[in-house]
Computed example of a mutant assay.
Amino acid sequence: MNIKDFRIHFNSKLSDLYPKTEIDAFFFRVVEHELGLSLMDVFTKNELEISEEKLQNLHLILSKLQQEEPIQYILGETSFYGFTFKVNSNVLIPRPETEELVEWIINSVNNSNNKVSILDIGTGSGCIAISLEKSIPSSNVYAIDISEKAIEMAKNNAILNNAFVTFIQNDILNEYKLEKSFDVIVSNPPYVRELEKKEIKNNVLNNEPHLALFVEDNNPLIFYSRIADVAKDQLNENGLLFFEINQYLGKETKEMLLEKGFKNIELKKDLFGNDRMIKATL
């Protein structure tokens, strides 16, 4: 089977599950990963015959896509802020909105000539912590996660990207204190309420770790409130707290931070126009 014929087959098998633009994105990503072909190659070498071994791999990937497994988990990696990160079902798949949060942090601290100490709470794959360490030359980065498997993945990603991050396994909801203070604390904690599950696509709902996604409806800011308390105790004077937030709870998150004594609170929309991140100063 050649590239052209496989693409026709690929599209026909996925057309009932995904929009065409998404299928095309899957196809280009898969052939690049498995066959080493660029986008241009797909069009200029579409008569190229695929070996039986490679064809078996492609059919296996296609079958997993038909089962609505995320392409990032199938291929075992994804790109975030220009870096490559290994991912599996133990960690959330990094998203473009979180890249915007990273960009905001970098722009907020990169004019400092001093060493910047950063704490990432709920690090998952380590995408925030590692991207900040790589992008802020004067940074000293720590990262916490409750999951031992997530910490293992994050450590591997730090090695992959030649980043120097101190990883700590801990449940932030328990009483815990690092024996140091920070200039920046950032977190993208669980924030999807149970009532919002109906809005979540099957490929996310059935594959990504619920521990990192969902909170109870009756206490949706549980992590934000606790992390804000940690920040009050461990941020340096004029230190910055950054959150990725639930788009429906921007007002409530801002009010909670005000009540805890934070100032200069700024709510920011993501590229889709949703309230998605917040910055506050101690």
Rank of each mutant, 00 (worst) to 15 (best):
N2T: 00
I3F: 01
I8G: 00
N11T: 12
S12C: 06
K13N: 14
L17A: 03
Y18R: 08
P19V: 05
D24R: 05
F28Y: 13
V30R: 01
E32L: 08
V42A: 11
V42G: 00
F43Y: 15
T44D: 00
E47D: 14
E53D: 13
Q56N: 13
H59N: 15
I61V: 14
K64C: 06
Q67I: 00
E69G: 01
I74M: 05
L75N: 08
E77R: 13
F80V: 04
K86W: 11
N88L: 13
P94I: 02
P96R: 09
E97N: 03
E97S: 04
L101P: 11
V102W: 04
W104I: 00
N107Q: 14
N113V: 06
S117D: 08
S125L: 05
G126V: 01
I130G: 06
I130V: 11
S131R: 01
S131K: 01
L132A: 03
E133R: 10
P137W: 00
S139E: 03
Y142W: 15
D145R: 08
D145C: 12
S147E: 09
I151R: 01
E152T: 11
N156D: 14
V165L: 05
T166R: 13
F167P: 03
I168T: 12
N170G: 01
N174W: 01
N174H: 11
Y176A: 02
L178A: 04
L178T: 00
I185K: 10
V192C: 06
R193E: 14
N207D: 10
L211A: 12
N218F: 10
I222H: 02
D229P: 02
D229F: 07
V230W: 12
V230N: 03
A231P: 03
G250L: 11
K251P: 01
E252G: 06
T253E: 09
K260T: 04
I265L: 13
L267V: 12
D270T: 05
L271E: 04
A280P: 08
